[in-house]
Design a protein around this nucleic acid. Sequence first.
DNA 1: TATTGTTATACTCTATAACTATA
DNA 2: TATAGTTATAGAGTATAACAATA
Lengths: 158, 158
Amino acid sequence: MARNPAPTPRGDLLIVDALAQFSFLIQGTLEGRASEHDLSMIQTRLLGVLRDRRPTMNQLAMLLGLDKSSVTGLVDRAERRGLVARVPSTTDGRAVLVTLTDAGRTSVAAVAAGFETDVAAILAALPTSDRRALSALVSRVLVAHATARGVDLFATSS
Amino acid sequence: MARNPAPTPRGDLLIVDALAQFSFLIQGTLEGRASEHDLSMIQTRLLGVLRDRRPTMNQLAMLLGLDKSSVTGLVDRAERRGLVARVPSTTDGRAVLVTLTDAGRTSVAAVAAGFETDVAAILAALPTSDRRALSALVSRVLVAHATARGVDLFATSS
DNA sequence: TATTGTTATACTCTATAACTATA
DNA sequence: TATAGTTATAGAGTATAACAATA
């Protein structure tokens, strides 16, 4: 958690504080871009997840870490706005598949593009070699974390 | 925004995706620790901000980026739980100062400690020199970003 | 008249529990 | 009987607009 003011008088922040502040910066950036399209973070995550999936409501709940009843409302509101659609499963009469509409795909692409612009601007403070170093370090941490959990970051999703 | 699956077949993720995923990892970690104490992210941010401040409701709204009416409810719920207290200002009859109670300070300290443990565990994947390098790079980005906004990250707060 | 804070209202987001329909 | 999804309900969190009290 970010401490205020920084505990070190000058120079680097403590790494915990630096990472906390950094994550707030990135999240805030994404939130700002999402709100340009009247999207909350969870709606944005929903659309993001649907870019390369067509999950059932239940799978969606697991992907987003929500209760299935929460997903019902989430998808209701997104569907009302024409961003997603419910499609009955042909193989299971109980199941419902959720898909991105064209409008939803357009929205999520716009948010992603804006976000990429923002991240590029934030990283412009670093010379190219440092940017690459940062990317490599963060990637290493992510891969290690995913591996520790038995997840393959590079696996093709179902 | 994190893309799924990763667009690069093997090796580093694109830097935007890496930073997005990383920020979700850090935020998720903090959220998990906060929920151990039945604290939402915004309640945790509230307590965090109050660790070294005694702001008015209005200042709190600016610090948290919320409308003042939202802060009324936020502080109401925190006060009901005994985490913060309202103190009438002695210099302005309209103003109310918000302070952390001992219970609030204990809670926020516990969350911070747990979070630090988690971050240390996440970073254990990197050798010490790389951890230092990551810290330095992130700090540099944060300082540059703050400076661009005319904020002094190391200023003593009021 | 302007500012500080609260209230009233409405909406999103979330979970738990109970329900319907299908497997 | 078990699973997929929805509904009912309750509460947190948020903003806008209107208000009371103080400056």
